[in-house]
Write a protein that binds this DNA or RNA. Structure first.
Lengths: 103, 103
DNA sequence: AGAGTAATTAGGTTTTATGCTAAATAGCGC
DNA sequence: GCGCTATTTAGCATAAAACCTAATTACTCT
């Protein structure tokens, strides 16, 4: 089952933004850092928080460190939130504006 | 769009448990409190946190105060988390073990 | 090896969160 | 009004989160 650390990690807007950006593919610490008006060490702490929750993982690429989204944990989080609020898939599809033909 | 307060509210295990329990219907502060080894004032602070995020709302019932899940905000949270991780509905349905017939 | 670049860890401060006890508020029933 | 029950607000202590600068580590290139 899902760790409480994942929910804590999602509590900060910068960390949520990092997750959103990593959806598209890995980015280095520096590339990520450019977008935020925050010191690199502070960003690094956010990476640690996300890494502790296993929402992201790091790989070294020569000089730089690349961060990637951990897709399987991301999916677990989505499922956990759906369970939390008792959303059934039909309801969710409707909420997203998709419709089924009235019989 | 969705408030950051909702994510903060979900960061605490007791608050998540409260949300889970309110899925089934309204409960009073006292009924909720029975389950946790925590003082009532501390629980009350958790209610405030959930209320500030509009994830729950309170109605007075005589002597007691009933808390209810705010379903529309709950749905917004689910959508926000799905957007965050870029889950498309098809993928999500598959992750939940539902299958479509191979054509 | 030494200089340069990328990113972290160390150490410290400030703010926010989480918990407590004691006191206050709100409604109920006599 | 008074006592009882339910719950909150007030006030306070401690723990955790979030930020900073300075120093360190890890790698590349000449």
């Amino acid at each position: 089952m899902l760790n409480s650390a994942a929910f804590k990690a999602m509590a900060h807007p910068v960390r949520r933004d990092i997750l959103r950006r990593l959806r598209a593919g890995p980015l280095s610490a520096g590339e990520l850092a450019e977008s935020y008006s925050m010191s690199k060490p502070s960003l690094s702490a956010h990476f640690n928080s996300l890494r502790a929750a296993e929402l992201i993982f790091a790989t070294r690429e020569g000089n730089r460190i690349l961060y990637s989204l951990n897709v399987s944990v991301a999916d677990e989080v989505v499922s956990a939130v759906m369970e939390l609020f008792g959303v059934d898939p039909e309801t969710q599809r409707a909420a997203r504006g998709e419709h089924v033909q009235d019989s």
